[in-house]
Computed example of a mutant assay.
Amino acid sequence: MRIVTGDDIRRVCSWPFAVEALRAGHMMPPADLRDSLVENAGRKMLVRTAWIPGLASGVKAVTIYPDNPSLTPPRPSVQGQVLLFDEAQGHVVAVLEGVDLTAWKTAGDSALGASCLARPDVKTMLMIGAGSMARPLIDAHRAVRPSLDQVLVWNRGQARAEALRQSLAEDGIAAEIVTDLDAAVGRADLISSATMSTEPLIRGAALKPGTHVDLVGAYTPAMREADDAALTRGRLFVDSFATTIGHIGELMIPMQTGVIAREDIEGDMHDLVQGRSGRQTPDEITVFKNGGGAHLDVMIAHAVYQALKGR
């Protein structure tokens, strides 16, 4: 059994590596998934399991402490580990650092979705939220859409927005802090949202034709980031039917009120990667819900483990 640290993961991972690992994983049969979520005083513990026939199986156990980034010194809001099992014989082959793997998996998932759905000529990205996932999402999206040459940053707190803007500027990326969210939504060609919001932030009325919307933050039945108009104006896609429908408020709430139906969700990542669904015209709005899932962790973990073998 190999212990894989965050440094090990960073040695072999790049955004193209992560995206291609996920793309290859979605050419395999769909995973069998099971989740368990417990909560105490706003803090959560999530255990996710996945078995991908012919690839690997794994368990991811993480805690989610939303206030951790505000501590002195700050700590990650998500902490945990991933167990990777040999698919053929069932033994543990690796234990991988979960914080680092989560960032590669989450942002890589959104970037793979954008590679299938965002227009190839997108120029302006709006990042809603300036937490720990903001920079990975920006970097991952820019890796699959190199035409992105401007980043708009919106966040409720000015300090985090400024820290993100400065980080981007230091790497030569044109970045601007925005305070009028509707106006920023109307400027963006690609919108990525990673917040803890329970009230919609993205108003569909403000979206311009051709925009791709990447919804990352919501992961409980009470959470959502886009309003009903955004969902009805856009063509809807998810990374996994199993981890989104019936689990996340982004889709559950509008389904319960009759705004959208299951049939309105046109495909999952298997459909997108295998070419059964995707963008059809330059002017249509596409909406992708990143629901995560242990199958994505298993895909990245397996690719990392294989890349480290022999090193």
Rank of each mutant, 00 (worst) to 15 (best):
V59M: 10
R311K: 11
G58W: 07
D67L: 04
M133P: 00
Y219K: 06
A242Q: 13
S197Y: 05
D227P: 08
G246A: 02
P282G: 06
T49G: 12
D182E: 15
W104N: 02
E87N: 06
G25V: 07
M27L: 15
E39W: 07
S115G: 04
Q81I: 15
A18E: 05
K289R: 14
R34Q: 11
R34Y: 09
V213K: 07
R2D: 07
A31L: 05
R48Y: 00
G267T: 08
V82C: 12
S110K: 02
A31D: 03
A184D: 07
M27C: 12
D139A: 13
I3V: 14
V238F: 01
A50N: 09
G204E: 11
D297G: 04
D271R: 12
K309N: 05
V4K: 01
P76C: 06
P209K: 11
A50Q: 05
R34D: 11
Q274L: 14
Q81Y: 10
N40A: 14
L37F: 05
L126W: 06
R233Y: 00
S240D: 12
M255H: 06
A161S: 11
G267K: 11
M269Q: 13
T281H: 12
G275E: 11
D139F: 02
D180G: 04
G234I: 04
R23E: 13
P136S: 07
Q256M: 09
